[in-house]
Amino acid sequence: MNLFHFLSQNQDQVFELTLEHLWLVGISTLFAVLIGVPMGILSARRPIWNKPVLGTANLIQTIPSLALFGFLLPIPWLGERADRIAILALTLYALLPVIRNTFTGIRSVDPAVVEAARGMGMTESQLLFHVELPLALSVIFSGVRIAVVVSVGLATIAAAIGAGGLGEFIFRGLAMVNNQLILAGAIPAALLALAADFTLGWLERRLRPR
């Protein structure tokens, strides 16, 4: 009951931090898609790139998030604003599921379909945009969905470097040993993750080829 009381009393701030949180997740996911999808296509088309690309994305994933935020802090332009660091770090973490699913999605297109497409005189770009990408879309999308859900959780840590978001409540609560405050950040963040998972899951099913 106390928690609900707190949330309703601080409605404006909860709303503001949720929006900040969504902004961090949204913009970093957008970057991850813009970078990750082409890299996934590249590694599916040119097997030489497969190992270095997926290996690097995997390696990034093993860096503890707090450490990565710290590493990025002294970088000149980036370090000036905490949200820049947070967006870059979240983008880097989101790359792996996006790249991997793009790769898997394209590779799992029926070879007979690809052969027929080539045999009928489709150019490589027609094959990619009219056949491979549409057929891989739901798999790519499920990668994006994983990236978003993970990012919603990770973005709470961005508050440690002052990038805002619902992590603010959590870190403030930790400092003040106030569980209520921690929950005020954690519960909306969890709800956000669930909502994103549900919405994107629904979209993903709609995109699945028949």
Binding site: A112, A116, G119
Partner: peptide
């Protein structure tokens, strides 16, 4: 020109290779 060549040749395979979408 491979693309021109292929457009002038019909191609039918056992697995049909029809586009499912």
């Amino acid at each position: 020109d491979i693309i021109r060549l292929r457009r002038g040749i019909g191609y039918v395979i056992q697995e049909t290779g029809l586009f499912p979408h």
